[in-house]
Simulated scan of single mutants.
Amino acid sequence: MDIRTRTEQLINGQSVTNRQLQTLLAVARTGSMTAAAKELGISVPVVHRYISNIEAAAGVPVTKSNASGTVLTDEGTEIVEAFSASEARCADDRGFTVCCSPVTEDLMTSVFSSLKMTDVELVISDDVHNVRMMKEGLADLALIDDPLYLYDFDEYGYDMEEIGYMGMVYVDNGPSFIRYKYGAQRVAFMFLDSMSRKYSIDAETYSLSEMLGSNKSFFVDEFLLTRKRLKLKSAVDPKVLRHAITAVFRTEDRKVTRIINAIKSRHLD
């Protein structure tokens, strides 16, 4: 007997199909409508139609074009993350799952490649979603950027280990800030509070390129900029905004130990 669980996603009360959502996910993954169509074995006009159906339900654009292709808007990213989470909850054959943010995404993919681990599922999201993945039993290992989120695990008895440290770049374009959805942002803004700086957070974004082009002030992890080969002038020494990256895991088995040791060998600091 083959019994499977399927989910349905409602956006503003309107139903969107899993196929449409899988298409949006493919666009996010490939960065191109054409590449997504090829990956899914459908035509480009069908991809556009599926995206239009989602946008009709959302009432806002879920993708936008840039110089390198197609990326998701903040709303599109929110929809994809909700879909990925619901699919993970219903998965009947979930393998070893690791979750992290875009700050440590390249690090994790590099570690998996060096260890020749091809059977690991990697989920990329913010700390809030990654904490929830661990609590709901949907992930085996999470890298948490913001140490303040570690208090959320107090009652769960998970093991934790600091695997390195990162500094944050503070780009100062005045008192108006755009808040990046990834990294130890609370730590950074607590620094401003400690300095009695007057500021306002006037925008939030999942998009690094949108933040860089915003002409607003912002904080971003120096490690992420280095991996993207970007160099920005910081108003303070990034070490002033140094924070721990912490691995949270259920049980320390051989696979967890290998991953953590490989990350620590990269000497994040």
Score class of each variant (00 low, 15 high):
263 I>L: 00
264 K>F: 09
258 R>K: 14
145 D>M: 12
85 A>P: 08
250 R>T: 04
18 N>Y: 00
142 A>N: 06
54 I>E: 03
60 V>R: 04
24 L>A: 04
186 R>H: 15
47 V>L: 06
178 I>R: 03
88 A>F: 09
108 M>C: 02
101 S>W: 03
70 T>Y: 06
263 I>V: 03
202 D>T: 07
253 D>K: 02
126 D>F: 13
40 L>N: 05
139 A>V: 09
213 G>K: 09
121 E>N: 11
234 S>L: 08
113 S>K: 14
242 R>Y: 09
143 L>D: 02
84 S>T: 15
267 H>V: 14
26 A>L: 05
166 M>P: 09
113 S>Y: 10
249 F>Y: 05
249 F>P: 00
100 C>K: 04
151 Y>D: 15
231 K>W: 13
22 Q>T: 11
95 G>L: 10
241 L>C: 02
71 V>C: 07
154 D>S: 15
238 P>M: 04
140 D>R: 09
50 Y>V: 12
125 S>A: 14
201 I>E: 01
113 S>G: 12
117 M>S: 07
33 M>T: 12
15 S>W: 10
161 E>S: 04
152 D>E: 13
191 F>C: 12
50 Y>T: 13
17 T>L: 03
196 S>F: 14
196 S>Y: 15
266 R>C: 12
198 K>E: 13
114 S>F: 03
